[in-house]
Design a binder for these strands. Sequence first.
DNA 1: TACCCGGAAGCTGC
DNA 2: GGCAGCTTCCGGGT
Length: 299
Amino acid sequence: MINRILSGSFLREDNVTRHLNYFKGRANDIRYGFTKKFDLYSSYDPNNNGHYIYTDPLDYPIRPMHGQFMLSGTDYHYTTMTCPGSSDLDDSHESDDSSVILDQVDMEMIEFYERDVEEKYSHTEQFQQSLNSAPYQQLCKPQQSNNLPAFETLFKGNRHSNNVNRLSSNHVMSDSEDDEESSSICRKGKRGAKNVLLWKFLLEELKKGKHVEWTDISQGTFRFVDTSEISRLWGNMKRKDDMNFEKLSRGIRHYYKSGFMSRQEGTRLIYRFNWAKVPKKYRQYDPKRGMTIKHQIAY
DNA sequence: TACCCGGAAGCTGC
DNA sequence: GGCAGCTTCCGGGT
């Protein structure tokens, strides 16, 4: 299933307006014959029969590539069109890398996936070679003729910046714009911990529901399914090899004082987010409306 | 054994 | 140097 979660538009150098979508989902990769999870950016030319040109940030550091997304009935299919650096590279690949702007940029998610890729592949020869490859360097090169930020800038230079030009009036709220109910622990957030915060990590993992899962999302209660695995992942994010659940849970207990989180009495491994204190943009449940917030916008 | 608790000190980056 | 947000250690408890 593929969901568009962000969208925007931009004007290319040749004055063609492109619409941009940020997709997240799964797709069958015909190159390898398996279904892969992905996050990708696609530019969409509405006059081009629903064809999508995309760059996959997950693959980007390893295999800079472009592909084609096609709409067929209610399903999306994608095939690789060209892969810069590969032997079958031709001149037809179309790069929008130099002019990608989103009205909403989920840098945190991109950073998370980038880190994931780096952890998995950074030690490999292939990864190092791809970073030094001419095609990759070419892709990373800012294009002087374009006033818009380069793809590379978007992904590596502006991670924590709010200075990305936005072409839409819709924008992601900064922490300072969050509602006044949000606790100071959230509003202050950018010191000391590279903005890699435990509660954000937990909310991301709760979306996946693998090692930690909601027991009652309306109450904000969740349960640790696999304490050692969630601790290992948290340790990876913080680059702490000896992270364990004892330390992770101590981090959670620090949230007790502010009321941001608590533990469900009489239970083990069940904790609770206080939704009223979670910044709006991170909420997965709206306590005022009494409804679960869908982060994906069905296309 | 695994989880839970909170004080205290240390570390890190802004 | 001050501060936030942890991390690490600890002694104790369930």
